[in-house]
Amino acid sequence: MAHPSSYEPTTGFEKWLDARLPVVRVMSDQFITFPTPRNLNYWWTFGGILVFMLISQIATGIVLAMHYIPAADRAFDSVEHIMRDVNWGWLLRYTHAVGASMFFLAAYIHTFRGLYYGSYKAPREILWILGVLILLLMIATAFMGYSLVWGQMSFWAVTVITNLFSSLDLVIPGLGTQLVQWIWGGFSVGGPTLTRLYSLHYLFPFIIAGVVVLHIWALHIPGNNNPTGIDVKSARETLPFHPYYTMKDGFALVLFAILFALFVFYAPNMLGHPDNYIPANPLQTPQHIVPEWYFLPFYAILRAIPNKLFGVAGLIGAIVVLFFVPWLDTSRVRSTRYRPIYKWFFWAFV
């Protein structure tokens, strides 16, 4: 794509294949010889970690779906069945649940890396927008997955989040109610809601995987940004992706996996809420209802704005604003290293 291909097919089969479907050439050019700035620091390893997390979530998710039953009266019991009866079920479920947290941890670091080093600026706007889109899809997927447990927290999270749409009643009376009933498939959260959440929770990760391919494609056209924010001037300032960055990413992945494993094996429920081990009860909202940690900033927006419609608008705006960051920031300096005032604001924001 962005750099001349250096792949030379050697065997007869490789030549035959290369003339028909140059998949080996693409892999070689994009993931082996790809010219990568020599000065990338460890904040740049989270892209690879995120790919690992997506694969881990899809693998454990497909397996969990073999045992899970998406019915309002059986979902909670089937989750307990996974925990108690299914071989390795406890490990698979904890890996999937903690995996969601670790996925967000890595995604947030990856996003703030982009914000800090100006990776959203020209010529990488599309790359950035695709990234925000992935984040949006991740938020939707994580929410739907959380609901499938059908415990108290799940049920009331579904109730609250779907009711966000009812705020449209304040714009056009009746519209919000109509929309919410369409989402629920009834007059309250129930069985039909659960099965559609399950269906979409299975679908979305594959859409994410598709957008990730576009995200990497968009990355490989201009190439990586780097901590200085100054464009690579010549090939001497780059290294081939393999073995230099496969090794660096691999090492970072091992460290990340150790953190992941510590949570899975020693504190699997630390990041969750104990109330979700109570089966869903449509007649009682839990006393201390809060979302998972990775949604707390959005939750805070809802609590902070004492108006239903504006609260919801603020929540959505907090994500949508990210789409426009490339044009909101008019500074011509990319890296925050050279923007001392922005640096203060950045850390204050974090």
Binding site: A59, V63, H67, H81, R84, N87, W88, L92
Partner: peptide, 14 residues
């Protein structure tokens, strides 16, 4: 990989 494959074996309830 092992847990991902072994989970398909008959479980404790079976």
């Amino acid at each position: 990989l092992w847990p991902l494959l072994d989970q398909m074996n008959p479980d404790q309830s079976a």
